[in-house]
Design a protein around this nucleic acid. Structure first.
Lengths: 140, 140
DNA sequence: GTTTTGAGTTACTTTAAGTAACCAACTTAT
DNA sequence: ATAAGTTGGTTACTTAAAGTAACTCAAAAC
């Protein structure tokens, strides 16, 4: 039995992704490695909000990213900085002033992330409907 | 002080995302809500692999998604099913046979996810470099 | 009658996320 | 002069999520 390619989407592109994903067999799949770091709500929401906000300061960003705690914002920003997605600019005044912004790499990721954001906004209702249906089925 | 829009990217698109993200103030941001469910490595890797694999059975999928445990695959698939992204087809034989595939909604998300996958593959080296640099700086 | 099979559970451990209090060091208000 | 407020964190602690390993079901093959 050969490998099955799912229908009705650009096949070439799929093959490309497939090849990338298969490198995981050798333990070096870049998608896997990246998602392990980056695939969490705060990283994604921070990148999305940074894309909009320009160069916000720590507390501006905290206010913007709804529900995030001070600790998780620090942790998330350090992680994004580590991956080269976010630049941290410290002005050693007192009280301290720190500005965050996307690096060029971060901005290139933002373009992709906006696609995700738009998708989520567009299909909100459909997802809500599916959840309701699922819960109905599994209530019994 | 007005709202700052970051430079050199399509501004209209940003405004759109910004508007969506700001709904969070009312506690109903669809992007936020969706990411809280979906933004984790296993959900994303499962969708990506399902896009490639067609209609794999449980253990095929488990073999494909490197590093995932039986429990996490079950949990992840249930969550994706709940959101209407994945369809589960049970054939009540013994031993049981179960096939999973992306729904049309899941396929539409796959297109966006492939963008993320391609981005990760493309910028792998740049990220690795940034991480090295970061660790160098923070070793002291 | 013991083993195997596929798709899960269940019980338990470890890691990550969330909460809340605290800090440094300088400015402004009392 | 002392007290309070400022920003961008840290530290200690609690809860929730992820990871690990053993177990289940019912029939089929050995």
């Amino acid at each position: 039995m050969g490998v099955t390619i799912a229908d009705n989407q650009p096949v070439e592109r799929r093959k490309k992704i497939a090849k990338i994903l298969e490198e995981k067999a050798n333990g070096l799949c870049p998608v896997h490695d990246f998602l392990i770091h980056f695939a969490n709500k705060w990283s994604m929401l921070v990148v999305l909000n940074l894309g909009y906000a320009g160069s916000p300061r720590f507390n501006e960003l905290k206010a913007r990213v709804s529900g995030i705690s001070q600790r998780m914002l620090t942790v998330t920003l350090r992680s994004l900085e580590e991956d080269g997605l976010v630049a941290r600019q410290l002005y050693p005044e007192i009280p301290p002033r720190v500005e965050y912004q996307l690096t060029p790499l971060g901005k290139s990721l933002l373009d992709v992330m906006m696609g995700l954001g738009e998708w989520a906004a567009k299909h909100e209702a459909e997802i809500a409907k599916a959840r309701k249906k699922f819960r109905g089925r599994n209530a019994a």
